[in-house]
Simulated scan of single mutants.
Amino acid sequence: MTPPAPVPPALDGLHVLALPAGTDVVGLARAWFADARWEREPGLAQPAARPTGARFRGIAVEAAPVVGALAVAPGVVLVGPHPCDAATARALGLPARDADLYGLPVRTPAEAQVPAGLLAGWATAAARRTGGGILPADRASVVVPDPAAALDLTLWSAVPVAAQDVVPLVRPALSGSRLGPASVPADGAPGFTLTATFPYDGAVVVRLARAAQVPLVLSGLDWREHGPWGYHVTWEPPDPLQLQAEPPSQQHVVARTRVAPAVARVVGTLWRAAGGTVVDAGGFVVGRAELDERAGAALR
């Protein structure tokens, strides 16, 4: 029996986050940890001075790689990247592609003031966002979150669309569904909830509400690029328990695949009407090109 591929010894005793090679790990980290920064940037150290003398002629002096140290909070540091080729990744149970491996501490010090589970939650969200995976410190298993499982999106905008305007606006994006009237808050405040029910695939709910706080990832953007109004577009599957199932049933996957483009089309329609910035369920910004790709998935 072939033994499992080794993880670099420098990562022993650490959880390992595997991201596709070249992924912007700082951008991912700052979506959850605003002050994330390199304490030590990865790269190549300056090579030592070339030795002189006839007996050293022709000897190449190579620069040694420097492993980075990414501080996401005081006392909480990720170490990496450690390159991993596709064959090794496959042997580890990770997606079979070239990857960058980062070591994460198993426990965060109390003085770091990082809530319990936050770092693990970020690692899971980052792996799902990029199609990566996680090797727990005990190496007893591998976690590969399904990127397709997170289809809910929220548009953060400075402009609230009126309830009476939203139904005709989004109806073309929800073809094949039964679209109910928009319900509004009893106190007459701006906002609405709109439900589109599909015959076999559950429902898409569009809800507009003003938030006291916006996702952390928006703090790095110009204030004109977002606002306090959240257009939350979520999918309610026929069997909600399947959202927690690993793996979900084939019926759930089929329904999710059919509904996902509708979610993206609704958000794209609202974006064109109200402007703003789209954030996914993992707390990461979704750009226009990605949104268009999601919306067109059913057409390919």
Rank of each mutant, 00 (worst) to 15 (best):
R171L: 00
A173F: 09
A173R: 07
A173T: 09
L174F: 06
S175A: 13
S175Q: 11
R178L: 10
G180H: 13
V184R: 14
F192L: 08
F192V: 02
T193Q: 14
T197V: 08
P199D: 00
Y200V: 03
Y200C: 01
D201C: 05
V205S: 08
V206L: 11
V206F: 07
L208E: 07
A209Q: 10
A212M: 11
A212T: 15
Q213M: 10
P215I: 12
P215M: 09
L216F: 04
V217W: 04
L218F: 03
S219Y: 11
S219R: 15
G220Y: 09
G220E: 08
D222S: 14
W223G: 08
R224F: 09
W229A: 09
H232N: 08
V233R: 11
V233T: 14
T234I: 01
W235Q: 14
W235N: 12
E236P: 01
P237W: 11
P238C: 07
P238W: 03
P238R: 13
D239E: 14
L241D: 14
Q242N: 06
Q242T: 06
Q244L: 14
P247C: 14
P248G: 02
Q250S: 13
Q251Y: 05
H252F: 15
H252G: 03
H252I: 00
V253W: 00
T257I: 03
R258V: 02
V259W: 04
A260Y: 02
A264G: 12
R265Q: 11
V267K: 04
G268Q: 12
T269I: 01
L270I: 01
R272A: 11
A273F: 01
A274G: 00
A274F: 00
G275R: 12
G276I: 10
V279D: 05
G282Q: 05
G282N: 08
G283D: 09
F284R: 01
F284M: 08
F284E: 10
R288Q: 14
E290V: 06
E290A: 12
L291G: 12
A295P: 02
A295Q: 05
A297R: 15
A297Q: 13
L299I: 10
